[in-house]
């Protein structure tokens, strides 16, 4: 392990550029540690975002050596090429400044994919009892730990190619909800995710599944949505 890292950091907005910094190499150093060190010791004006530092909040994602990652749980030793690091904001999202992206568009897409839960029960009703072993519950479970980090969204070429595509995270959210037996907006949701802006735009490139730090497979949910939409269309329920 050498003494120093050479770190290129994106500064500015879309028309910005990389600026190189020298950062002391430490053991057990995460990419987020590196960014924080630069901000504390070299340039307090560096903009970036994080909160939990333990992989729960989903706010620290950046592009590290070309690949979208959660930086708080990415060790430098795993990603540095030699002693070189390149840190950029997430792709496919507007840049606020430096390493901070504007996530509004990302979550607006969840709303467009009908990502809100709609139930029929009131506070006076008893708890719903959902069989943990039922296929729908198992399917929902597989996607429910999403932390909304945007890594899948930033890795997906179809998001870059088709501006209207709601993207893997929004579709994964929709998939968990169509498998929630308490939800009553299933048909409306299938309508929202059908077609070119929804699940049918996906080319099964698998980047989302490959990169999701939580091990979620949005590709699986998207394939599931395609099947449900097809079934509903055949039955004339769409």
């Amino acid at each position: 392990m050498s003494e120093e890292l050479v770190v290129k950091v994106w500064r500015g907005r879309e028309d910005g550029a990389f600026v190189a910094y020298r950062v002391p190499r430490r053991e057990n150093q995460t990419v987020l540690d590196v960014v924080t060190w630069i901000q504390r010791h070299l340039d307090p004006s560096l903009a970036y975002r994080y909160a939990c530092r333990v992989g729960m909040c989903g706010s620290c994602a950046m592009t590290v050596n070309g690949v979208a990652r959660w930086t708080c749980r990415t060790h430098v030793s795993r990603v540095a090429k030699g002693e070189a690091l390149e840190i950029a904001p997430l792709a496919n999202l507007p840049i606020v400044r430096d390493l901070a992206t504007d996530m509004r568009d990302f979550f607006d897409r969840w709303a467009r994919a009908r990502g809100q839960f709609t139930g029929a029960a009131t506070r006076h009703d008893d708890f719903a009892r959902v069989d943990p072993a039922s296929p729908a519950r198992v399917a929902a479970d597989a996607g429910i730990e999403c932390i909304g980090c945007g890594v899948c969204h930033a890795s997906c070429d179809v998001v870059a190619w088709r501006p209207a595509f709601v993207g893997p995270a929004a579709l994964n959210r929709a998939w968990t909800l169509v498998n929630d037996e308490r939800d009553t907006a299933g048909r409306e949701r299938l309508r929202a995710v059908a077609g070119d802006a929804g699940c049918h735009a996906c080319h099964t490139q698998g980047a989302c599944t490959e990169r999701c730090p939580k091990g979620i497979a949005p590709t699986a949910g998207i394939a599931g949505l395609k099947r449900l939409v097809a079934r509903a269309a055949v039955r004339g329920e769409l």
């Binding site: 879309e14 592009t63 050596n65 070309g66 690949v67 979208a68 950029a88 904001p89 997430l90 792709a91 496919n92 999202l93 507007p94 840049i95 930033a154 890795s155 997906c156 070429d157 870059a160 980047a207 990169r211």
Partner: peptide, 10 residues
């Protein structure tokens, strides 16, 4: 224009 995924991401 946002940044795009490049060959490293692919």
């Amino acid at each position: 224009m946002t940044r795009r995924p490049d060959f490293r991401s692919r």
